[in-house]
């Protein structure tokens, strides 16, 4: 019951932040809304019992990636964006409700077909330690035993991407 109430609070925060991200005119407000989205997503992961993923979500996305976003916005001193065209009135008024209804129907259908809606919210409890699927030990076993090769290959891919970025950014004229 408590898990359900908390889920709705954080889900509302998450969706509200996402909408605010689109509505805001100033890039720094949008970036801050995105941080709210990331933070509430982390709390939803926590409710599902995935503690490790929740912590990593905060450290990597809310803490590192978004700091870089904010840093770049600060560095470029980007101002509020100018909207040149007003767009159609019908789209402004009906756009969001129509999207919500459309997305809701799709989500309900997909979750019904794949059986996702039969998984209870609140899921495996965080309290009783040992064999919960989301704790650091479980994640470690999966990453370094069952999926060792994909994990290492991904890390090499990321390394190549970093080196590529450095080479492109420092190209001599």
């Amino acid at each position: 019951m408590l898990a359900l109430i908390l889920f709705f609070i954080f889900a509302a925060l998450c969706v509200g932040g996402a909408i605010n991200l689109l509505v805001q005119k100033h890039p720094i407000n949008s970036a801050l809304s995105l941080i709210v989205v990331m933070g509430s997503l982390a709390l939803i992961y926590l409710l599902l019992g995935a503690e490790f993923v929740a912590a990593v979500q905060v450290i990597v996305y809310a803490g590192a990636v978004m700091v870089l976003f904010v840093f770049v916005i600060m560095l470029l001193n980007a101002g509020a964006e100018e909207r040149l065209s007003q767009g159609s009135k019908v789209a402004t008024i009906l756009g969001v409700p129509a999207l919500i209804i459309g997305f809701g129907i799709t989500a309900a259908l997909v979750s019904h077909i794949t059986g996702l809606d039969r998984i209870a919210i609140g899921g495996p409890t965080v309290m009783n330690g040992a064999d919960v699927f989301g704790n650091p030990q479980a994640v470690g076993h999966l990453l370094f035993r069952d999926y060792l090769l994909p994990f290492e290959v991904t890390s090499i891919l990321i390394l190549v991407a970093i080196m590529g970025a450095v080479v492109l950014a420092r190209r001599e004229e």
Partner: peptide, 14 residues
């Protein structure tokens, strides 16, 4: 909590 250290790192990074 059994992710204590990660909680500290997360909070300080925010």
């Amino acid at each position: 909590v059994n992710i204590g250290l990660l909680v500290i790192l997360g909070v300080t990074s925010v």
